[in-house]
Design a protein around this nucleic acid. Structure first.
Lengths: 298, 298
DNA sequence: CGCGCCCTGTTCCATTTATTACAGAATTGC
DNA sequence: GCAATTCTGTAATAAATGGAACAGGGCGCG
């Protein structure tokens, strides 16, 4: 998979017959779109007959035309996902800057494809204090559930972080009802335990919000709202940065949805804070500007 | 035809039924490739039935599924022909896009200012298995400490997440020594409890790595390495996205620093995994690509 | 110059695929 | 809580597609 099918075609061009070559050239001319339609379309665009297209596909090493199409599609998918996978030029240093850049691209792409209406619907859901909110995450994404819960708990009551072992999760289920909301974070190497809980919750009529990767966790099939994010980075691990920005966007949305309540609750909780540094230290970088949580600026 | 079908879908999303919406989201999640295959593939990838896909296509104004595919193909063709035809995703709505954009800018800025040498030094520190790693976070950043710990624990031994109440933290102190490392996440509304632990650790000769915001937590004065990040976003809350990318960069760095060990440990732990979906569902988009953790690609 | 081979297109068939009809399930409104 | 309506999946149908066999034609070789 390291080299594009286009290159492959160019190489094998010599071993093609005359009309097959026309087919190949037509495909290369508008690659890969031409190969994504039907054989007949391909054939007429190349000015040859259908069987020639099939023979061409066979010569390229595909046992069936569908196989060629699949190859084309996956290739296109990869290419669209990481716009940096241009030619075969491998950047000398795939190091640190790339990683951050790609994480940024992921976030941009994620939000470009996230429908606003979905976000708004979820924000409305999360802002509704009559619904109990349950947050759940996987091996790594549990941290996100926790992070989001920590914020939401300040903004509203009835926020539950489903933590601990799967065995204990069932205990949460008994309290879930039709009006409640389960927010699940699940990215690839999808965890079947999360799916189990989600399905059980769905059967209870719980509204399920799924934050996942662009391949969609199987939980999508029982979810009411799905927020997919880009997670691929040049590392064996996936990046949850985009997931986190989604979480933060939702938090910001809930905060802004009812500014009065947010302000009130935030300042109330400020009173209880004891972990703030009591003795502000003197002359650091300019001023240390603690964001005044009691006075939302947006 | 001037606007992308993707936008169209996003607009009409409101008038969709629940399952149709899932189809739409699945398509948007990996646009446009998913729409180029067969209906059955689309359906299973979206977790709905075939007729739903057809109904979705109909609601989008296509009399037939083939019409939708044609539209997708021509659009793709145009896009590939003129690479300058950037998505017309203008700033329709300032609210949501701003947030994501600014989060991106934060990340870029953060890494522009992070000295590579610092990163490398910290990576070397974290990769050294002779040192015990302690991770600690604040109210919100505890999730990051947890996230990072979850990864590091796979890559190496002797990783401790300092959790729970401050009172219990002292128990960790007794084990800390001159060779050990404490990674602290602390952003504004800096927490004095974190500072107390850090100072105590510093007095024991522990190497302290601080991940903080650009105004620098007071812990900076006792830290060996400081990694500052941009956290401001248009919300009363701060964004930890840049912190997370820093964490992920470090994780990726440690993974790449000793690929042999990483590979070995990851695959060893894979064996113990029981939470993977045993029955991979059949015909997803191309393939559901679970990143092969046992075979790092970078 | 004529024979034979390989290539190419036409036609047909089998398979896959999109599509429609229907019935069950869920949900909304009263 | 019940009924009407909408929605969604199952199953059957019809169309379109890919694939295979077949026949005509161009080309080189003897």
């Amino acid at each position: 998979m390291t080299k594009s099918l286009a290159e492959d075609i160019r190489e094998k061009l010599g071993s093609c017959t005359a009309t097959e070559r026309r087919a190949a050239l037509a495909l290369l001319a508008n690659y890969p779109v031409l190969g994504l339609g039907t054989v007949a379309q391909f054939a007429s665009a190349a000015g040859v007959s259908s069987p020639t297209i099939l023979r061409f596909a066979a010569r390229m090493g595909f046992s069936t035309y569908a196989a060629l199409q699949t190859r084309l599609r996956t290739e296109l998918e990869d290419q669209l996902k990481s716009p940096l996978a241009k030619g075969p030029e491998s950047a000398a240093e795939p190091g640190v800057l790339d990683f951050a850049d790609i994480a940024c691209t992921n976030i941009s792409d994620t939000f470009r494809q996230l429908p606003r209406t979905e976000l708004e619907a979820v924000v409305a859901l999360l802002g509704d204090e009559k619904r109990t909110l349950y947050l759940l995450g996987g091996r790594f994404t549990d941290a996100l559930a926790r992070y989001m819960a920590a914020h939401l708990r300040i903004l509203r009551g009835r926020v539950v972080h489903v933590a601990g072992q799967e065995g204990n999760w069932r205990d949460y289920l008994v309290d879930m009802g039709r009006k409640d909301v389960l927010i699940v974070f699940d990215i690839r190497r999808y965890q079947s335990d999360l799916a189990r809980l989600s399905v059980a919750a769905a059967n209870l009529g719980v509204t399920i919000v799924l934050v996942t990767d662009s391949w969609l966790s199987p939980i999508a099939s029982v979810a009411t709202h799905v927020l997919p994010a880009r997670v691929s980075v040049p590392s064996p691990w996936d990046s949850s940065a985009a997931l986190m920005v989604i979480a933060e966007t939702l938090i910001a949305g809930v905060t802004a949805a009812d500014p009065e309540r947010s302000k009130r609750r935030i300042s109330m909780l400020e009173v209880y804070r004891d972990d703030d540094d009591p003795k502000r230290r003197s002359g650091r970088t300019g001023e240390v500007p603690p964001k005044d949580l009691a006075d939302p600026q947006a």
